[in-house]
Design a protein around this nucleic acid. Structure first.
Lengths: 353, 353
DNA sequence: TACTTTCATGGGAGCGCTTCCACAAAGCGT
DNA sequence: ACGCTTTGTGGAAGCGCTCCCATGAAAGTA
């Protein structure tokens, strides 16, 4: 390492920049303490002092220095959304977009800001961890949590309030999470397909290292059992269209006589549809198809998609809300919050002719 | 389980919080100054002192308090990505996902973190502005900039380094931006459709208050002129599938004899396709279709989509890179950085029979 | 009137960190 | 030997803010 850092210009010796609280106080003709109080809710501040400060704020365009503030308050007014996903494709899943907007919505009326933290590998994930532990944020929401991720354990020790979206693997320690009823979603898919008269059902499940995927699969399996159908073939994919397409091709090689497929996400259902068409199956009469998420695109495909609808935005908003509560009272305990899944029937699952 | 016992281990007495630099120094047997130097690159620190500090860091799990650090350095090690979009649907555009990943990629080797700032209306946008000016971030990247947004003006005064993705409206003040050649993209679309023998061409353009949209439209218009075709009908939509679908229906009402449509995004092309099918047109033989972006989905639609490919990730990464340079040297001037657009031909634009 | 209680205020002590500065200890020419 | 620079070091001064506390004024109570 050369001595590059110190060589170049030093950071603006005198700061004509933003006015400080001191400047504000002088301009308002009060003390720094009073100015501070006036700014922070005005408790124990006379109306005239408060008005003077307000005027000075406007005149100077005063904006508090957040670093100084959080140095003493130990609050940063921002929370992190941790997305431990390595791949661009996964980020494109509308799931994340909805989660982000859901959280934003919940944060609207607060002064909290959302910091997006994407980690890609062990290296980065420790970097992300450093960030979280460095006092950068007051709390974190973790989404798309994989089995190998050690967020729960690593963060539990730090005392950083944290809420998971989607049940984490390790629920032994006290973790707060919100989720949708993925088990029931899988079950609904199985029952619905059975009710249309399909007999040979397969599924493209999500990654085996995510509870959201295993739960849907478990529900699906149970649904098949309840319907008196035999267990069909299962292939795992990564929730992406391309991944599912490939998985579906494998699945169809192994089990060419399927008459229905349940894909654990709408994006994956698209991939399955591509695979089916490529293989010459007719959809939906030859092979029926059920997706998951009720993504906007599900209604607009060539064959509109029957799918499992889940309130992702509400769930994300709830996660944010729970986190805010935890920030308020770190000792608070939240039971898991599970949203229902429901079936949305479209053209991709007609009754058997 | 109502037991309020403190079963979960917590050494949280009063403030066992993170160890401070002072603690570190004591543990390493050096002064606070030396510990600080050792941590920050080790300039003018003896190897043994440095080793001692490193050991102490590991032993204590020391992580610097970012607030204290940035209070004095006036650096926060994070930059904001500002997305002035009010609507969930827009967030779902893969464009943003790619931008985010592109920026993340560029930031990988730095210790910079990305803060996502979404603003929804005037109220929030001033909140976002406060955030930016509050010393929360070292710089900002603004994407999806609308005409009415006053980011450029508002931020120019603060001295906050800022880079736009997509040419901003007001380039009078010195703004840095990266973009793709939207004009050329529009032109390519027109020329390609003309070359297939289409004569009556319409377009679904993006919002009239975004340069990215007006540039594509201008290029399209010029392309038509160059090809000797008459100007066709134009409808504007908001880059969403649903919006484009509606716009396309209007467009087709006004001009039912179109034999080709250029949609200014792939998502909008999907909407156009839906509208065409709903209206009983045959795609692509009756009406050819060109999209924009080359989104993953463009290749997977029922009729694979001819589209304009643009290097969004590269552009976003470049924006981040330029911003980092500006952080290093605020005085640096960057000329606009424009990436090329290129045509990707698929099945949606066959030659006229 | 004398007293307690409330309220508003400013002084001052940090929060944890970087960095200026003085200073001692080498290095190294002559 | 002598100056001279180079290097490593610790002390101390803040960065801008919050908040405890002492102080005095106003208001309530006797």
């Amino acid at each position: 390492m050369e001595t590059q850092t110190l060589g170049t210009g030093h950071p603006t010796a005198k700061r004509p920049g933003n006015p400080t609280l001191e400047d504000l106080a002088v301009a308002a003709g009060v003390s720094r303490s009073t100015a501070s109080r006036a700014i922070n809710g005005g408790y124990k501040v006379s109306p005239q002092a408060r008005a003077a400060v307000d005027r000075a704020v406007a005149a100077l365009g005063y904006i508090p220095n957040q670093a100084a503030r959080s140095l003493v308050t130990r609050r940063t007014s921002s929370i992190a959304l941790v997305i431990p996903e390595p791949d661009v494709r996964v980020m494109m899943d509308p799931f994340f977009a909805i989660v982000i907007t859901g959280i934003s919505e919940a944060l609207r009326e607060t002064d909290m800001q959302l910091v997006l933290l994407m980690s890609r590998n062990d290296d980065d994930s420790s970097r992300a961890l450093r960030y979280l532990r460095g006092g950068h944020v007051d709390g974190a929401i973790v989404v798309s949590h994989h089995k190998a991720d050690s967020w729960a354990k690593s963060l539990a020790g730090t005392g950083l309030p944290i809420v998971f979206i989607g049940r984490p693997w390790d629920t032994s320690i006290d973790v707060t999470y919100v989720d949708t009823d993925n088990y029931e979603g899988g079950r609904l898919a199985a029952h619905h397909l059975a009710s249309t008269g399909r007999k040979r059902l397969g599924t493209i499940a999500g990654p085996a290292d995510m509870t959201v995927a295993t739960d849907r699969l478990a529900g699906w399996t149970e649904g098949l059992r309840e319907a008196g159908l035999q267990q069909g073939p299962v292939a795992h994919a990564d929730f992406s269209t391309a991944g599912a397409q490939e998985a579906a091709l494998r699945l169809l090689d192994d089990a060419p006589h399927l008459d229905a497929i349940f894909a654990a996400s709408d994006l994956m259902a698209l991939g399955v549809m591509n695979a089916l068409i490529a293989k010459g199956y007719s959809v939906p009469d030859g092979v029926a198809l059920v997706g998951y998420d009720n993504h906007a695109i599900a209604a607009d495909t060539a064959v509109p998609l029957t799918t499992i609808t889940q309130p992702i935005a509400a769930m994300a908003a709830k996660a944010a809300e729970l986190l805010l509560q935890k920030l308020d009272d770190p000792a608070i305990q939240h039971p898991p919050f599970i949203y229902p899944a429901e079936l949305t029937i479209r053209a991709s699952t007609p009754p058997v002719p």
